[in-house]
């Protein structure tokens, strides 16, 4: 029987990928947990300290503040991301003329390196050499706009905006595919009943895509937690620590203070919080499934 012969190739086919995964992902992952129980001295020695670094984390104002910033980033970014993404996806759903050009231009930033996009916007938001502040100054409103990346009130929002500008294309495409899967007969029935486009959109299309939005929300939260490069390049966590997120804090603690164990403990807490948030949201947003 050829089934038995097939089994001979299972191990050799799986081996290369499994080896890579074990050495560069699973082992480091397990070692993160182990490291979180050890303290590193400046000389590079480690000693076992049990859960004490976790206890320390709970009272660490910097860490708590960074978690707060991550929440703000996810929320503010989500508010900047989803309304336009849905609106544009709806526009693509209309099969307008010239759609391809718009698709290209709106999606193009997605394929660019985060590093380049972050740098680009750092310059665009530069108070004198950039585009935004001089533009407002030119029409006489210069006093109304703060130095966006230099003001603790706006810096995090500016970073969130940049992350959204970079990634919005993906969310538009995902939402577009949601529109494409709407049952055409239901929409047609609505139109025959005299529903306007707006009513169809708000009362029929959006509720039908509820599951999709649940997935997208969770995806966005996971993504926004990893906005490392945007913060690192645009503000470095400043001004006055107002944009420090867990990822940049971990990086600093590990490589500037050489406290590998403490940074690893942060990592473990982040994963646990993330999984908890994903599960919680999944439950919270789940309603009895609609039958179409």
């Amino acid at each position: 029987m050829f089934r038995r012969a097939q089994r001979r190739i299972v191990v050799p086919f799986l081996l290369p990928a499994s080896l890579l995964l074990a050495v560069f992902f699973l082992y480091p992952l397990a070692r993160t947990v182990q490291l979180s129980f050890s303290e590193f001295t400046r000389t590079g020695r480690q000693r076992f300290v049990g859960l004490s670094q976790y206890a320390e984390l709970i009272g660490d104002d910097q860490f708590l503040a960074s978690l707060g910033h991550a929440v703000v980033l996810a929320l503010a970014g989500g508010c900047m991301l989803f309304p336009p993404a849905v609106a544009i996806a709806w526009a693509f759903h209309q099969r307008l003329h010239g759609e391809r050009v718009f698709r290209f231009l709106i999606f193009a930033p997605v394929v660019l390196s985060v590093a380049v996009v972050a740098l680009m916007w750092k310059f665009i938001l530069h108070p004198t050499l950039g585009l935004v502040n001089p533009a407002f100054a030119a029409i006489g409103l210069g006093d109304l706009v703060p130095v966006l990346l230099g003001d603790p009130r706006t810096a995090l929002l500016a970073v969130a905006f940049t992350a959204v500008w970079h990634g919005i294309g993906i969310w538009i495409v995902l939402t577009t595919s949601g529109f494409a899967r709407l049952p055409a007969d239901v929409l047609e029935a609505g139109r025959l009943d005299g529903a306007g486009e707006w009513t169809l959109f708000a009362r029929v299309m959006l509720p039908m895509m509820r599951d999709l939005f649940r997935t997208l929300t969770i995806l966005w939260i996971v993504q926004s937690l990893q906005a490392f490069a945007f913060v690192f390049i645009m503000t470095g966590g400043g001004p006055f620590g107002s944009t420090e997120i867990p990822a940049t804090l971990m990086f600093r603690v590990a490589f500037e203070n050489a406290e590998f164990g403490y940074a690893a403990a942060m990592g473990v807490v982040i994963v646990v919080l993330l999984l908890a948030a994903a599960l919680g949201l999944n439950k919270l947003l789940k309603r009895d499934d609609l039958e179409y």
Partner: peptide, 29 residues
């Protein structure tokens, strides 16, 4: 084959765990 779903979920775990947490041990490795 036996264990195939276990191996698959081992690989797919990489989709769920954020990359940033493993960078310290990865650096050491």
């Amino acid at each position: 084959f036996r264990g195939s779903s276990l191996v698959l979920s081992g690989f797919l775990m990489g989709l769920m765990v954020p990359w940033m947490v493993t960078f310290i041990p990865l650096y050491l490795t």
